[in-house]
Design a binder for these strands. Structure first.
Lengths: 226, 226, 226, 226
DNA sequence: AATGAATGAGACTTCATTCAT
DNA sequence: CATGAATGAAGTCTCATTCAT
């Protein structure tokens, strides 16, 4: 992630003293995610961030103006990363409605997205009154777009299959609830709840209501503990 | 809210100078819930709590020793309140397995439990790395008990109905995920997601997998806007 | 003011650990004046103030909420102190117009007012764009009141004496200019410019334009140096 | 002031990448004056200066080594500019003593000198303990020279006119006080106090004590407001 | 000459906790 | 029991200065 170091031509492991704006911003956002994952958002200070980044204290304000802004840009980064993934899958021309819907489901549990470190950031925003407002200001558009798309896909599937099931918009909302709830489980009980298990649970739900479009999943084996 | 304070029989609006231990503790826990709901857990200080309680700063430490302890006892209070409700329903001798399961579901969306103020506290604990540990130390037993009970109930239902569905333990876990996810929706989008709608969504899920035990719900009307 | 001390019974010179609101505020304002006099307003930090006061850092915010507020209340304190002095003199029923005018002049150079420490505060406010605005918001009323009174007094004197001199309002304004200019001299060249010399200079000006009302002063002896 | 960019011959509005030492220093001093006028000396940072100058941060240190030095050189620039003006007038061979004295007075209120922007700098130095020392180290010689010259001129006038007035050195000092006080008025109440009005006030003072040498001024009209 | 990223000391402010009353 | 003044560590942010480019 912090891979693209610099165009070589430098003493092997001496980090560059100055770097481009975007490189530094990326480093700091990554460090922020790490810090939130480890210390929580309340325990994240400018110092913990700079320690994760290996940079100096003043640099954060130089690049992000304020802690608030750094936290917001971190959320926006994750929201975009997530959006890019599910939206690209949805846009794939060759897929049927149910394939698209499943692709969106899978995107939520993609190994690059459904990481405990990254989930920590999402739930940090969900966990506090003031931040929920910020979240909505920054991410509502994306969430609404996805809800709309999912609803349309469900409608298409219901039409096709002639299913007797809840209205499409309720199915889509239940899916959204499941994403959040299963993410929370992965976050809190990582030994019990895996990405694969989460996907299987959602597929089982979809298989129950769209039996001709979604095959019943096989549940992955699991540790009994935790 | 904390207004209609005292049980009359006192000079109109003079608050009592001394009160019983439990009364004061209750007042302070209620104030803590209110403060977390309004200011978040990070924005909750000993002072915001005392302001909500209408009591003095020293009193909080007198009754709870530390802020950490106050927050923990607040969580325990909510966990017990919740447990009392669903466990009582489950214990009701006259119910069938599916009725018990639905009673547990309903308890999660009981008007005394599924309040935005109270959900704020739960998600405050979910939102931060350090607090998740605390949560697990304090609430895991209850959560595991409920998961065990739900699993048993699902097993009984599956046996009875001869359903071809995911294993009982996965259904129970999916239910837990739905509780969390729908609670989060109520917390974040209170205009769209109501207690009734949440119950209907869970019942729709159960109706899909246990069609002979759970009737398909009718979804309550709703505002289109958020 | 420092009234509710407490029922004595205290070891002689141990300062009280807690004191009444007004006592502490007074201490802190005095410390602020001392700090501005010594370090300038820019060099005045919460630490320098608390060191002068012998109190702890957090206490300033406890009593004054912010540094800005502390600085403003310090200015207001001085403005009121000054106002009380000249206004009382002006109100003295037994004085003639010229006596009142001279009393106002003298109040500007009263030993409790025209102190280098206190002048430091006034000029700190005059010296910076942002603070000048604050000054005007806080002190303009007093300054305007005094200008109005001085103008009236000059008018009365001019009428009485039939003087051929600048209009009363210009005399009053020239006086205001002299106050400021001579204060600045006392501040910058304390060895050369004394309170007594300043008063003599203003009296000489008034003697020149109101010869029958104001006697020519004798100038106090002085050091040639500085 | 920063207008005389360079001898043309360059692409219209592309600023030169390199410029002569003196041009850059002049630009930066002008920017410093602007910054002090707008943000105060405390609010003036190397960055505000560079923004006013349209130059880069490193350049300021390159040309002035430190902020302290930049501020001092700015003061020296203004002190010299002022000195040049009044000293040239004083040197004018054709003038009488009273004409020279009035020329010195007028120089203080010359449109190039008595600017709110420039006065901001003077009063920034007057306003803070530490800076007053710096001011004296840098400007005392000039101030003393002027005081000496004014005293001599007053002596000559008093001899000539046989005036019964305060000693010449006190008149000269009163004049210095008036300069400072009226400058402050221009700085703080620009709508009420103009350069012309200030000059008239000083002339009125001189007319009162040197009636045969200084004619009574006519006071300029003014806005009632402010 | 010139740029601007980087550093880190120091400022203001908040807040859990203590303790005299 | 109850109050609230007092403390001081810790956090955020600013900014003069340095230095690689």
């Amino acid at each position: 992630m912090a891979s693209s170091r610099k165009p070589a031509a430098r003493a092997a492991d001496t980090p560059p003293r100055t770097a481009s704006r975007e490189v530094r911003r990326g480093q700091l956002i990554e460090a922020t995610i790490n810090s939130i994952a480890q210390h929580g958002i309340g325990g994240t200070t400018m110092n913990t961030v700079t320690e994760f980044a290996g940079l100096s204290l003043g640099l954060v304000n130089f690049h992000f103006q304020s802690k608030q802004n750094l936290l917001e840009e971190t959320l926006v980064f994750l929201a975009r990363e997530h959006h890019d993934l599910w939206f690209k899958a949805y846009r794939d021309a060759g897929l049927s409605a149910s394939e698209k819907l499943l692709a969106i489901v899978d995107a939520h549990f993609h190994p690059r997205i459904c990481t405990r470190k990254k989930l920590s950031v999402w739930y940090a925003y969900f966990g506090e009154a003031g931040r929920r407002k910020v979240y909505r200001a920054l991410v509502d558009d994306i969430d609404n777009q996805r809800l709309g798309i999912s609803t349309s896909l469900c409608e298409a599937i219901i039409d096709e299959g002639g299913y007797d099931c809840p209205p499409a918009r309720h199915v889509a909302r239940t899916l959204e609830g499941l994403y959040d709830g299963l993410w929370l489980n992965v976050l809190m009980y990582p030994k019990t709840f895996t990405r694969e298990l989460s996907k299987a649970q959602i597929r089982a739900y979809l298989a129950a209501i769209f039996p001709n479009h979604v095959p019943a999943p096989t549940f992955p084996g699991q540790n009994a503990s935790d």
